[in-house]
Design a binder for these strands. Structure first.
Lengths: 233, 233
DNA sequence: ATGCTTAGTGTTACAAATACACTTTATATT
DNA sequence: AATATAAAGTGTATTTGTAACACTAAGCAT
């Protein structure tokens, strides 16, 4: 039997960082934690931590988000990997960044289940504090990512409450795209997608004419994105 | 002076893998190497290797591609990071995948400058061999990436020789999109982009009517992609 | 009853995408 | 020289989507 050369065993460290978008009180927000450990103790940071040895990246992302914020069952998507040599003071740590857009029911409490984070809070993206590591850069790239995504997929509803008005939806688009949109054209386009269901219900508690409520039809939405774009023939 | 707790020093290993697309003899190809080292010695693989300690990911990608194939100054873009627990037999190795589309002048010789790769060759994507590690999966994701990209950005010219005919361009689109396109509409659309320059030259050596040659105008191309998409107002 | 504030609505103009088939031209063959 | 061949090259009508644009309707507060 031929002896194979002995190979060194690799034992690596890398991390996950999460950019979680929410929409509340007419503002786009992201989740930040206050770090309770070194390095960057007491700094604001994206929820992020080291991946464990026997964990795939996707699984790690879910676990880490849960442990640092208490949020569960959030579908996140990987969007970029940051690997500058000096991005981590303890050595070479590459971090894989994930993003998600979620509905922030007001009720969902943020409660870190580990002491790594002192607390987790929703922070308006307009007014972010200085962040630990290269997290400002990571956030910026994540923001560009959802801006692009929303331009070709009507995914904004992930951020809205179950029932919403068309004006709320439009405001959300305007914030993410950083542009003002024409009301009539916006409504026409959205309704044309055929993924909104008009409800027999109206907004309540407003001191003016109440708007109709809508909800998204996820089945139709899924069907919509089976057909592909451009150059169909 | 307050003593900070001593932090462990991280010392990690991760890799880069490159999916390099070329177009030759009417076929879409990618670059593969034949591995000359364990693990997966003698297997076909994507050009890929470990990142060095003091190297950013982008720089590592360039170096690794060069060392394994002899190709230089190729602009690559990161597209996904693969981190399944068992993807590498020597332990936990996360790999950051890059892609590029390049012009394959016929002349550019492929010559690994390290013995890690025995050789590097262009392989038709239609007929890839079994690949080392999870490289088949990486390739598949890279292919989807360029398919999507080409659908909204006329980047296909990266793959073509300096001078090309519209029919060649169309064939390339058809191969990447896996669809047949209408000749008149295709031409109209391409010419409307305003990034093609008609030359005073014709195809040579064909046994039928020679087609006009075109080349891409990179200046106009760059300008085209400063203006953004969708929902402009 | 009046005022205020937002909801809700339609048309026209322009641009882009699609469907579709014949003529022209360079070369090769006889 | 005549003919065959193979791909180049070209235009129009239809449909679809995008863009610009301003007033009336409804509900609540006073």
């Amino acid at each position: 039997m031929i002896l194979e050369p002995l190979l060194p065993k690799f034992d690596s460290v890398f991390s996950i960082d999460c950019v979680i978008f929410g929409f509340d009180e007419g503002e786009l927000k992201i989740l930040l934690i206050e770090r309770n450990i070194q390095p960057f103790k007491d700094w604001w940071a994206l929820p992020g931590y080291l991946v464990e040895e026997n964990e795939s990246l996707d699984v790690a992302a879910e676990r880490i988000l849960y442990e640092l914020t208490g949020l569960r069952d959030i579908f996140m998507e990987q969007f970029y990997t940051f690997g500058d040599v000096d991005r981590h003071p303890q050595g070479r740590v590459v971090t894989v960044a994930y993003y998600a857009m979620i509905r922030l029911n007001g009720t969902k409490e943020l409660k870190p289940v580990t002491s790594i984070a002192r607390k987790a809070v929703w922070y308006p993206v307009k007014d972010l504090p200085k962040l630990a590591f290269d997290h400002s850069k990571i956030f910026a790239k994540g923001f560009i990512k959802i801006r692009n995504k929303i331009s070709y997929q009507p995914i904004a509803f992930e951020l809205l409450p179950e029932k919403f008005t068309l004006t709320q939806l439009q405001h959300l688009y305007e914030i993410i795209l950083n542009a003002t949109l024409d009301k009539r054209n916006f409504r026409k386009k959205m309704l044309n997608y055929g993924i909104l269901k008009e409800l027999d219900e109206k907004q309540k508690g407003v001191s003016y004419r109440a708007a109709k409520l809508y909800k998204f039809d996820r089945r139709k939405y899924a069907r919509l994105f089976q057909k592909e774009l451009s150059f169909n023939k």
